[in-house]
């Protein structure tokens, strides 16, 4: 039942294939089927497809409450050639993703491997690590803002015991990104559970065979665990990528993108442009750029991983 294995074919394939010739009964079945999927289809058109298309169209205009004129690709030209804030937002967003994504995979997989052993109390650890991942949003940001408070935060107080002077976590454009990374890694518990499910699905014979062949810990990890887990890791990486590029609340509620635009993610720039300055056309161009980045990186992930991801039971 687990569909952690990747590939649209495997996700779709479990349902019966449509028949080729359609009699009256099949036609009726088709009609009724179409009726049932309306809740998705209408919502898809109204709240995804049409706004999605509209965003592209609006990105070619200088849409604002005052009116809208078609200006061709001017927004895009301006974005790439004459908008330092855009590049700042790109930089911040990429630095964050490059820090967070590898760390979340390493931490998630590492913790899952530790928990994939038999010992008393393993369930307690699972609960503890999973608990923070049900928490999100503003309350979590408020909580962390006091953990990292310059004077009274527990982190700086603890560092003080070690003789380290207080670090201006939220007052420095250098430290604010690490703080948001840590804040996000707090929610890694859901990935741990996914990796744990994957690890438990690896046949023990593989480990026995590796052990008979005299493989050590690292060799076993490289040659058994990693290949068997690769589809799950890829899926987690892609989902993480899509989500991470959209990160907003964490920075907006923490520092409003500051200090000094140090946590000014692309999402914040889109928000400010659209809802602060009411330059809706330009905001759409920025959001299309965000979409293009996500799309091309997802494609890249799949392309690079094609040779490196192992699908048990996949046909050549």
């Amino acid at each position: 039942m687990s569909t952690t294995r990747l590939g649209m074919e495997t996700m779709v394939g479990a349902a019966r294939r449509p028949r080729r010739t359609a009699g009256p009964l099949q036609r009726r079945e088709a009609r009724v089927g179409w009726l049932w999927i309306q809740p998705w289809l209408i919502g898809f058109l109204a709240f995804t497809a049409i706004p999605f298309g509209a965003a592209f169209v609006m990105s070619l205009t200088n849409w604002s409450p005052a009116g809208a004129e078609f200006i061709g690709f001017d927004n895009y030209v301006r974005m790439f050639t004459d908008d330092p804030l855009f590049w700042q937002a790109i930089k911040v967003t990429f630095v964050f993703v490059l820090l967070y994504l590898p760390l979340s995979i390493a931490l998630g997989l590492g913790a899952a491997m530790l928990m994939n052993q038999k010992f008393v109390g393993v369930g307690v650890f699972r609960t503890i690590y999973y608990l923070p991942s049900v928490l999100s949003g503003v309350a979590v940001v408020v909580l962390w803002s006091f953990v990292f408070h310059r004077e009274f935060g527990v982190v700086n107080l603890a560092l003080g015991y070690l003789g380290i002077p207080p670090i201006p976590w939220l007052q420095s454009s250098f430290w604010v990104i690490p703080v948001i990374v840590i804040m996000q890694l707090w929610g890694v518990g859901a990935s741990i559970i996914i990796y744990l499910g994957g690890l438990q699905g690896i046949p023990t014979e593989l480990y026995e065979a590796a052990s008979l062949d005299g493989a050590g810990w690292w060799r076993t990890f490289r040659s058994v665990t990693l290949p068997m887990m690769s589809p799950i890791i890829l899926l987690q990486a892609v989902i993480g990528l899509i989500g991470t590029f959209q990160i907003f609340t964490q920075s907006f509620a923490l520092t409003r993108g500051g200090p000094d635009y140090g946590s000014y993610f692309l999402s914040l720039y889109i928000y400010d442009t659209a809802f602060g300055q009411l330059k809706l056309g330009y905001a759409c161009a920025l959001s299309v750029a965000l979409f293009a980045i996500i799309l091309s990186l997802t494609g890249l992930f799949f392309a690079v991983s094609r040779s490196r991801v192992y699908y048990a039971g996949a046909k050549d």
Partner: peptide, 9 residues
């Protein structure tokens, strides 16, 4: 599709 693309329209 990021929520950011559909949010303005």
């Amino acid at each position: 599709i990021p929520v950011w693309v559909t949010i303005v329209p």
